[in-house]
Amino acid sequence: MALSLDDVRRIAHLARIGIDEAEAQAALAQLNDVFGLIAEMQAVDTGGVEPMSHALDVVQRLREDAVTETDQHALFQSIAPHVENGLYLVPKVIE
């Protein structure tokens, strides 16, 4: 099943990637090629097969509830694009 140009625009928006008309057209052709390759996998009968999320069949290790981190915001914010009074600044969020 082929993607449409609308699909490309929709997923580009979901992924917050700016895409102009020419880029969308080019992406559409390439994505359809890739999904052509992927289609082979879709035809396989996987009835009764459990999905495999992880390479190894082990369970999660948990950590003890202890504060192990110290304040490093000055270091972290030294590489931030825009900070003021200890806050990261972004363009105004309108709700």
Binding site: V67, E69, Q72, H73, G86, L87
Partner: peptide, 23 residues
């Protein structure tokens, strides 16, 4: 809890901005 769900940063309320936000 004392520390966060997935990190060892403190959860105390009212600390100065981003001082309890670890890597």
């Amino acid at each position: 809890t004392r520390s966060k769900m997935f990190s060892g940063a403190a959860t105390a309320f009212g600390a100065p901005p981003n001082t309890q936000a670890c890597e």
